[in-house]
Nucleic acid binder design. Structure first.
Lengths: 261, 261
DNA sequence: CATGGCGTTTCGTGGGACGGAATAGTTTGC
DNA sequence: GCAAACTATTCCGTCCCACGAAACGCCATG
């Protein structure tokens, strides 16, 4: 039970987290007095933390019984994190294997707010000048990650992703919705997506979806290489990516419920 | 996004929870600058919160990449809460049904640190003088809840529950380990546990285990009544409890992984 | 070599977190 | 049925420490 006195720790926050941990770990909804006693904190202080945590939706205050429990906001966050975490965790080993095998940059991405978010990136070289960074967002239509995911989404969802104005990121970016639809069909058929300098000049990508147990594309994985390099590697890369994606699907925890759409 | 300025809110805590929510909702590990920008908070402040949350184990600080993500402590809590929550939630309707049907107090309990913890209680009458309260703990050997759970636990675990000195709560409490073992066998055979004034004078209980998909007793449910009342009801109560428990098992989310033993 | 972006550290200030004590409201127990 | 004991809530004065601007140092970038 570290006191959290690490130079920069904010005491109210550290103590509130103690309260948080206690409440979340109990099998039952708790009372103010119980928490104060268990943590040896003044009840006024605990009272304020409970109020604060309830006000922000992390706790639920059952007025009737005057008891505090974990709230839906917390559960929603936990659920979201669990999904993301299991994706990253299951993909780890395969990303390493790919970067070792091809000596090229490998990306893991998910769809969020209709954009591709880079979630993990393994660089082969130090010259990362043109690479994306973790957390960066790129359009769906200009990336192999985006195309790979879109291809395995229900048609309605794909239509929603089609913006009136697709951003022209390079002179090669395909901005015509009809072209996009055709590529989606093509990707769905052959199982992997391609992108040649449409997102970043001189860089080519091959991407594959990562499907959950229900066949839903919860993420995608891509390998990017300079155009001339990729010309040689393409076939082997496509093969390797698809194999890796299959193994990741296997490694995923059984039936991630994905409660909220 | 309520500011959480509800009279008693502690600002540092409220803001730290904003940080918490942001980090947990992102699919990727985040940087200090990203959080500060996203939440429009001064980076010094965010820095301190991230430090505090990392120090307390809720966040994991990846020093290598200087990124913050959700930590294992948080996941463990979330997991624990999810299990407890799903038990309570699945049992709710059945508890109500039982209390309505028999007009007697109904209890829901789980095992924690080798004791029975009351997790939900529905009182039929106002005279709650002798009843347990939510969060209270009673011994395994003197309650029908405890016996019901013990009966469906692996033998090794049952042995661990047997203390050198079983507490004598009433003059009827059975304190002999051999008697306890015999009752456990008996309970396992017939599917429900009985307890007559062994925990509280004049009160008799019948308890049944609530099993998860693997047949593991994750909780138990009991109905308590005055001895003379129970004499009449016993058969019907045992029947009803077992039916209810079966339905709760059905209502439980598919395969609660129960990651940690 | 210069520039910008980042995380870390410092520091002085003032607001607000703190907790004891008083209040109010409810249950317990005789 | 009244007193005692418990609870959650409110009040208030003190003093601490959370705050955030600014400075610093460290890579990367170009």
């Amino acid at each position: 039970m570290a006191k959290g006195s690490d130079q920069y720790s904010v005491l109210p926050v550290a103590k509130a987290m103690q309260v948080f941990a206690y409440v979340a770990s109990q099998p039952h909804a708790v009372t103010l007095a119980e928490v104060a006693l268990a943590l040896s904190l003044p009840k006024t202080t605990v009272f304020r933390y409970l109020q604060t945590l309830s006000a922000s939706g992390f706790f639920a205050h059952d007025i009737e019984r005057d008891r505090y429990g974990v709230g839906e906001r917390f559960r929603a966050l936990a659920q979201k994190d669990a999904v993301h975490h299991s994706i990253r965790r299951s993909a780890e080993a395969e990303l390493d294997r790919l970067v070792d095998g091809f000596r090229q940059t490998v990306n893991l991405g998910v769809l969020a707010e209709d954009e591709v978010v880079y979630v993990d990136i393994r660089e082969a070289t130090r010259s990362q000048r043109f690479q994306a960074r973790i957390g960066h967002r790129h359009p769906v239509h200009s990336t192999s990650l985006g195309k790979a995911i879109a291809a395995f989404l229900p048609d309605e969802t794909v239509e929603r992703l089609i913006l009136p104005e697709f951003e022209q990121r390079t002179f090669r970016t395909l901005t015509d919705p009809r072209t996009f639809r055709r590529q989606v069909m093509e990707t769905r058929r052959r199982g992997f997506a391609m992108e040649t300098g449409e997102n970043e000049d001189g860089v080519t990508c091959i991407g594959v979806p990562i499907l959950d147990g229900h066949g839903f594309p919860i993420a995608a994985m891509s390998l990017s290489a300079p155009e001339n390099r990729m010309r040689v590697l393409a076939d082997r890369v496509a093969e390797a990516l698809q194999d890796a994606a299959r193994r990741i699907t296997q490694a995923l925890p059984p039936v991630a419920p994905t409660i909220s759409g």
